[in-house]
């Protein structure tokens, strides 16, 4: 009985997580996104347009690591909420402080 449970747990782990190929693909995406970031950085004609582009690219990298490497995509939703509570609160506090210190004006 205990053994059966153990093996079923194991198969869960294997199917619940992505394959090596997925991990590798994510890694390649991360490298490519970083390369694009650094590349864009040297294009001077973009002006202030660089800020949203870089923000989106690094946001994508963040999401890739959290979803695949930290396997939130395959885990219980509760864990996602626990993390996002802190994450979004931190983002809000950062932006509120920047606003209060007239960072944007």
């Amino acid at each position: 009985m205990a053994n059966a449970n153990e093996t079923s747990n194991h198969t869960n782990v294997d199917t619940g997580h992505p394959t090596k190929a997925t991990y590798f693909a994510v890694a390649m995406l991360l490298v490519v996104l970083t390369a694009i970031e650094v590349g864009i950085f040297y294009i001077e004609s973009l002006g202030h347009g660089i800020i949203p582009i870089l923000a989106i690219l690094s946001g994508a990298k963040f999401a890739l690591v959290v979803m695949f490497y930290m396997h939130l995509r395959y885990d219980a939703k509760l864990l996602t909420w626990l993390f996002l509570a802190g994450f979004f609160l931190a983002i809000t506090v950062v932006f509120a402080l920047l606003g209060l210190f007239h960072f944007f004006i």
Binding site: F83, G86, L89, A90, V93, V94
Partner: peptide, 15 residues
């Protein structure tokens, strides 16, 4: 939960 808490830590430093 700890990682969520640590977000606030780095958030404050980045702010």
């Amino acid at each position: 939960a700890f990682l969520g808490s640590d977000c606030m830590f780095f958030g404050s430093l980045i702010a």
